[in-house]
Structures are given as C-alpha cells and as structure tokens.
Design a protein around this nucleic acid. Structure first.
Lengths: 225, 225
DNA sequence: CAAAACCGTAACAAATCGGTAACAAGCTCC
DNA sequence: GGAGCTTGTTACCGATTTGTTACGGTTTTG
C-alpha cells in the first residue's frame, strides 16, 4: 500500500485530506507542524508528500529544500492559499513537483497524486515469487536464491502462464491456446513434455515442494502453497 | 539542449508559447494538429510535450494515450480552456503529468516545465561504467582502462540504449524503435549484425565477461555483472 | 482382476533461430 | 570524384529448441 504524508497545520483541512486519502486506499501519515513533518518525511520515507506552505516552526519551502538536500526524491505536492505566481515558481524551483492552490477540488488532488504514483509504479518491475524462486518478467529470468536458471522460450512462456493462473485448474486446451497460440497444431502430449522439463528445473530436489500438480483427465494446476 | 514539442492549433497561442520557450533556451518543435503532433512525438522523442486538448484530427487525450501506449515516458503537460474537474482527472488518468488551464501564467508554465526537466536530468547519467569500460555520453567515447575504443554512430547509440536499459529484456522491436526510430524500415537481423560488432569490441578477450546476453525469440539483455 | 485410459519421460527428428561472413549501397571527408 | 568508413541485407551454418512417438508405470473402470 502507498504511504502518503500530509503536512498541514489547519486541523479541519488536515482531517478532510486524511479522510479522503484514507478512503482512497492510502496509508496516511500526518504532521501538524514543519518540524514534525520534516522528521516524518526523513524517517518514514513516504511515497508522496502533501505539503502546506504556511506552517509553524519550519515553512513548506524550507522543508522541500531540506528533503531534496537529503536526496529523497518522492513527489511533493504543495498546497497553499497563496496563488501568487512568484510563490508557485519559487516552490517548483525548490524541488516541488506540483502546486495546488486552495481552494482546490479534492478529486483533482487525488488524481494528481495518483498520476505521480502511477508513474513510479510503472517503473517497478513485475515479478512472481513462488518458494525460493522468482520469475522476473521484465528481466526475463528465473532465479532460485539469486542463482539464475535457464529457461527456453516455451518453458518461460508456460511458467509465466502457470503463475498468472495460480491455483486455477487449467485444461490442456487452455494451455495450448495461451502458450502455443490458438491456431497451433501442436498435440496435447507436447504440453506434458514441457511440464516434465519445467518440473526438472523447479522441483528437482528431494524435499522441494510440488508446484505443478497433475489433474488427471483435465490438465495441470500451479500452486505455490 | 532540451527539446520541447508544442501541439496547439491556435496559431497566436502557438506563437506565444514558441517565443517564450525558445527565449528560455529550449529547442522548440511545433505541430498544429493532432496527427502531426503524434507523429512528431513518436519521431523526435522530445523531452517534454505541451499538449492542447481540443485539436483537429486527433484530440489531446487520444494523443496522450497513444504516446503512453508506445512506452514513451516523457512528461506531458496538458493545456486547455476547459477547467472542468472531470476533464482534469481524465487527462491525468490517461498519463498526463500536469494540467494547466487557460488563461495561465507563462512564467508558471515555464517553471512547471523546468521542474519536470530538472527531475529528469537528475536521474540521467552522462557516463556509464561496466567492467573495465566507461561510456562517456557527453564526450561521445568509449574507453577501456583509459584506452579509447572507436565506435561508429549506430554502435554508440545501441550501446547507450543497452546501458540505459541494463538488466531489462529488450525486444528487437523496442531496440529498433529506440535506436533506429519508429518509422525505419530496417530489418530485425540488422540488429544482430550490430550486436556482433559491439561484442567484438567489448567482449573480445577470452576471459572477458559477457555483457550482451541473447534472449532467444525476444532480443537481447545487457548485464554488467 | 484385467483392460483401458492416462500420464511421465527418454529418444529422436525436424524446425527454428541467432552468429557471422560477405557483399552492396550510402555517406563523408578529402 | 574517389578512398574509406558505415550501414543494411542476405545466405549459410551450427546450436538449441520443439514436437512426436514409443515404452512403461500408475490409476481408473468394468
């Protein structure tokens, strides 16, 4: 879950923001003055910060500058009553990523926050874990405790399909369609052959858990326990 | 110099933006309808796009969606007369990074653009190290223990792309798009030829580590370990 | 309990894919 | 205009991958 830090001294504004972001599914941290806010930012390293400018103890600009000085690069959205052009420019130059002036639409703010987080998430690689194994799709490799295990293209595709459909019973026809393509003429028994080679690579050891289960007369099912 | 693409059909607005961004030191490209704009974006791969919503031929939302579909991730700032909350949210959800409503302050827009580009620049390296090698982007040269190794322009571009995408599986199409351009008619096998010549230059020795890995049926992957 | 159905797997043949050399066309710099 | 470099294409070859089949073991069924 994404963690978001809201630094705001107006308690009714803070409550409104907290409620909305919590309702939208974020883990919300709050701080009511600049000092607490800065500490929370450095300490918890949230995924995004909503930052008021006018704050007791340390103002928003200063917090922004200090966070960037620590080479933390989470997005910072500044919230303020000031709509002065020069303030906006100052904020952006100090390393803020966006600047929203009060009064603002909470939905718009949620959308802006989501846009920043989506962007970051896009860059994270997608991978599946099972037992000691990790199948990293973007690097296209399977590892067991950081040791790479070679897979042929079909083996990779088959394992990827199994992982995408974990816990589901898969008929041979479904597997053929998904891995070999709907117009292939490959026979059903070829699947079995590839299951054997896959099993040799991921269930070789004597105490190794069983991932690929045979469903007699149906096909197979992958379960990572 | 940073290249910025402005897609806007109102000619006086376009001129105003162009002048200001050119004066601020950007290399400015312009397009006056959606179709030209999309082509310019895919072709020139600018560092940032200013995008009007209401455009002839293809609208701004669609352009935004199509650009993101091509896995291009330059920042997109939407410009529009519409100030409706729902439009803003739609734009941000389609992959825009910011949304500025007309009339806007040109200084604020410049500051917002600068903020995105600054962030980008922070992350981009201008030299990459791998094994005994250093690829210096700004000096445009590859060295192995201070000995320069000659690279042709395409070889350099290919190696640079590999290094930017270290650890990621790259399909031949992605490589063609990034190194040869999306509208090139170069065949897939030409990549292989360049990979061979690159390998001869950076993996020649008998004990030299393998950097460029072949991924059968996919393409290649660069790994510096 | 025997026959049938089904699956695991080894062996083998066929197909596919990538490495690379050779060559032609383009380009650049004299 | 020509030498030399760069780029793109093609063809051949070898290695890997893939699909099929056959044999044997196990489970189900009658």
């Amino acid at each position: 879950m994404e963690t978001i830090l809201i630094i705001e001294d107006d308690s009714s504004m803070l409550r409104g923001l907290t409620d909305n972001f919590a309702y939208a599914g974020y883990n919300v941290l709050t701080a009511s003055d600049g000092e607490k806010g800065l500490n929370a930012a450095l300490d918890a390293k949230p995924d995004l910060i909503l930052l008021d400018i006018m704050l007791p103890k340390i103002n928003g600009y200063e917090i922004c500058r200090l966070i960037r000085k620590e080479k933390l690069d989470m997005p910072i959205i500044m919230l303020t009553a000031k709509g002065e052009e020069s303030d906006i420019i100052l904020g952006l130059n100090l390393g803020a990523d966006d600047y929203v002036t009060k009064p603002f639409s909470i939905k718009e703010l949620l959308a802006r926050a989501a846009a920043f987080l989506r962007r970051r998430k896009q860059k994270e690689k997608d991978s599946y874990k099972f037992g000691d194994f990790v199948l990293d799709i973007s690097a296209r490799k399977l590892t067991k405790k950081n040791e790479e295990i070679e897979l042929s293209p079909k083996e990779f595709k088959l394992l990827e399909f199994f992982l995408k459909k974990q816990g589901k019973a898969l008929t041979r026809d479904e597997i053929l369609n998904a891995v070999w393509g709907y117009n292939s003429f490959t026979g059903h028994r070829s699947i079995d052959r590839f299951v054997t080679t896959l099993r040799n690579k991921i269930e070789s050891g004597p105490h190794s858990p069983v991932f690929i289960h045979t469903l007699r007369e149906i096909g197979y099912k992958f379960e990572s326990i």
